[in-house]
Design a protein around this nucleic acid. Structure first.
Lengths: 205, 205, 205, 205
DNA sequence: GTATAACCGAGACGGTACGTCAGGTCTTGAT
DNA sequence: ATCAAGACCTGACGTACCGTCTCGGTTATAC
């Protein structure tokens, strides 16, 4: 029954002020410019109050992203290629946003050090996306699209899909994303999956 | 003839001491622990001396990586798939090293802000690797392996190859690299290239 | 009512530690050896904490002297000569201290540059001493010792009294102060004042 | 016969360039702004070359003043008061110059630490001025103006004369020097000397 | 209603790093 | 041996963040 804690509860207004201030800073300057001092000043509060809610700037940054992109839907389109394309479209949209472009590298570095942020990220971002792919593959197997599921490394499929998007965002030369980028890379991942179970790729679309 | 410039020359010993100190720190703690103070302390020199050589810790970190992984060879194996596999093998080896695992995210974030580091990185890391792929594709086109070169986006091909490696390194859940990872991803990139020019993929290897 | 200001108050212990450290350094090495780094190290605190209290080393040095010599009493002995002698005795005692010998020149140089230190010095050291002399002259005028006050330049009288003491301290050849130095120079200043209003000097004492 | 040193001799041009650069800097910013770096840059030479000529900035500063004010003439006006007035006029002129106002305090502080500068200053500035006063007193004694010379402390007389000038320069509130300042203070010193040998002061001028 | 527990603003605090400046010395090549 | 150039070590500068703390004052529940 989630018992009420004694004492004065957190002011929700301050929390949202901080989240908004962080989002603005992340949109503008990006991760390197996120300092607790600046955030609390802009949110009109103080360091101590900040640290009651978050363990540090990286934690808050993560929460901003989680609020924006935390929930992934799972759509059953009826075919593996269709499902993978859906997943890829959602990820391209998420990762190509200014918020991600400016902060992904910084957060990935923060994860290396900070266990808490790493766990949160894994749980809220990585796991759901991996699950979407696993479900798509399972459904394909049930439909008989794939001979044998065990031959497919879900993790590898995921990296094959999200990797090119990340590369395009993080590497300086990376251009934009044209309308068919998601389709092309999803097809390639699809071929990869088929090849893994020994099925020759059908006619290219 | 590289004329001698006037004045006392840089002490090469100090330079190598700094590079070595940086490499140790990068191997151990990774990018976040790279501070100018710590480096000069360990190298037995001073901040001012450091700043005569490097613009900051990120610049030095880049130089360490450039010294280790700067030069890429170009091997002509006689087939596009063979060439791409060579490229991929080299990149897997480079990126899976502890040095890269611990520092790639930090450097990518540094690049967002620091123009100089971004240019150096682009010039010394990105451009040569892109060039390797371009040469492989050009040779394949000459051999008639590919119908029309213009249909192939070199940049996209590069992202399709390096992306999965990066994802595996930077994302917390990323496992290791088994012996055939390079082969599999190179094959997938190869299929992607063929599909781009409308050629059906041959029998999977 | 001296309302309490918000926030954590300054630690008085740190303040006194700094003042004591400064006094020791001023006594030992003198002004040139006063560095913020050394002071905070000896007081066991940090630069930032120092700068919350003082604008710089010269400010702190001034505060040390102000605490020691800040307040001057005003004694009415009944005669101008007596009053001037009292003032002179106090100034000889103050300026002949090791603290002043070692730091006066440095502080005078600091004053040239730093407006704040100049103002503090003027207000807390110069003004009160000038006032003592002015009061003595006013009382003498009321008693009829001096014909007309306006004829006396208080500033000049002050310089005539404090000047010789300063010269003796700052100039390298300056010897010590014998017991009658204050009396002799006060008499001379007295004669100067009388001469300024056209009164012949009486018998030398 | 002042044997010629082996090797290349000092460039006199550099020496004068340095002296001139120093004078400009002393006139403008004053002692605190005298840095070896700035001086050699402005003189178009280098630190090493500077240190072959001078032991430090304070040494050079002293040389500038010595070149300007080093030699004092000795005039015999026929009376003690006349001679003292001459001395005082010269000192007022010297000390009231911008060059002295901006650098005296700094040099006095430098003297406290640097033995060499102290010796140079004593020898070239203090000793000659003391000697002028001593000669004036000796002549007065020969003329019978003073009963007995031994009763007069030359050092004290010097401090009584130069002290007020110094006070007026160094103390922040010190005003300017009107035309009769030298006369008035010389008279006062004269009275002091007479009093010291027990002679009543004559009618004020 | 009145404890009590936790919040909140303000800002000091020790720690660590930043990038710069000045001092005085040393190394290189040239005169 | 001087000179220009500039690296080098030492040590100090004033500032920025970090995460914690100490104040005085303010809510919300819980007794």
């Amino acid at each position: 029954m989630a018992k009420r804690q004694p004492g004065r509860p957190f002011s929700t207004e301050i929390t949202t002020d901080l989240l908004e201030a962080a989002e603005r800073a992340m949109e503008r300057g990006g991760y390197s410019n996120l300092t607790v001092d600046t955030l609390v000043r802009e949110a009109g509060t103080t360091r101590a109050t900040f640290y009651r809610r978050f363990t540090g700037a990286s934690h808050l940054a993560f929460e901003v992203l989680a609020a924006k992109f935390g929930d992934v839907g799972d759509t059953d389109t009826g075919s593996l290629l269709g499902d993978l394309t859906e997943v890829q479209r959602a990820d391209v949209q998420m990762l190509s946003s200014q918020l991600m472009r400016n902060n992904l590298a910084g957060l990935l570095e923060a994860m290396r050090t900070d266990d808490q942020v790493r766990e949160l990220f894994t749980e809220r971002f990585l796991a759901p996306r991996r699950e979407s792919i696993r479900l798509a593959v399972d459904r394909a197997a049930e439909r008989g699209e794939l001979g044998a599921v065990p031959g497919i490394d879900i993790e590898e499929l995921r990296d094959l899909m999200i990797g090119p998007i990340i590369a395009r965002i993080l590497l300086p030369t990376g251009g934009g994303f044209d309308a068919e980028f998601a389709e092309r890379t999803a097809e390639t991942a699809h071929r990869h999956a088929l090849a893994a179970v020994g099925i020759a790729t059908p006619e290219p679309a």
